[in-house]
Design a protein around this nucleic acid. Structure first.
Lengths: 122, 122
DNA sequence: GATACTGGTTACTGCAAAGAAACTGGGATA
DNA sequence: TATCCCAGTTTCTTTGCAGTAACCAGTATC
């Protein structure tokens, strides 16, 4: 899940910025803490994750709840609006299941077949 | 359509790179020439449009047909694979119809309410 | 001979997002 | 006293995308 080597990097869709869609999927089963979100997105730095979550909070997609404990605990949860994105993400994943192999096949044939002279390539 | 000032700039979805989705919509009613695609996307430069179309051709989303006439004529047409993106784009537009106002409202309230001190903003 | 048309290409520039790495704070634990 | 924990923040560097502007080939028209 969210492996940087997996072909979903070639998936031609994006929800919000680069990580928003994955955050939504991370939160679909209930609230999660900052570090719990970081684990499956193992490439993301805390700075970028903070930026993503702040933007989602601003847009009303998540709510942030800080508990005055220590060590500190902060939970993020999808709002109702944020949950509406799940159907769209599911549609994108369905497309990928059905058509991404064809796209990747086309891309592979492009690179291996006629490295030059292919309709005016350099 | 494709007005840079229209709020779809805030739409949190993207198909492929920045212009791919709009190109797909431009081509949904049949083949179009290079300059015909440029018109509705009035902000895009030929360099960027060429890049977009080459990437789509590489991924098997469009076919490029050059007619040896003059002045030269080149037509771009959606492939069957490219057409499958239309349902996804329609789903994204439906989401925007139903939920984008709420997102923009949340964003506006965020900026106007409590410019500082809002859960740790600078 | 000069200019325009189509469908690009090339070189250069600017900006914002992304990332790496180190640091913070304040209590808890060893 | 030193170290760890979480949830970040700060600073700096890199990367890549997008855009501007100029140029090109071949024909046709003025």
């Amino acid at each position: 899940m969210f492996d940087p080597m997996c072909p979903s990097g070639a998936m031609p869709f994006q929800i919000g910025d680069k990580w928003t869609g994955m955050v939504v999927l991370c939160l679909q089963d209930g609230p999660r803490r900052f570090t719990e979100i970081r684990v499956p997105l193992r490439a993301v730095t805390p700075k970028v994750l903070t930026q993503t979550l702040r933007a989602m909070e601003r847009d009303g997609l998540v709510v942030r709840t800080a508990y005055p404990e220590n060590p500190p605990r902060v939970e993020y949860e999808l709002t109702e609006l944020g949950r509406t994105l799940l159907t769209l993400i599911e549609a994108a994943r369905a497309w990928s299941r059905d058509h991404l192999p064809a796209l990747l096949r086309a891309r592979e044939e492009w690179t291996k077949a006629a490295p030059i002279g292919q309709s005016g390539r350099p």
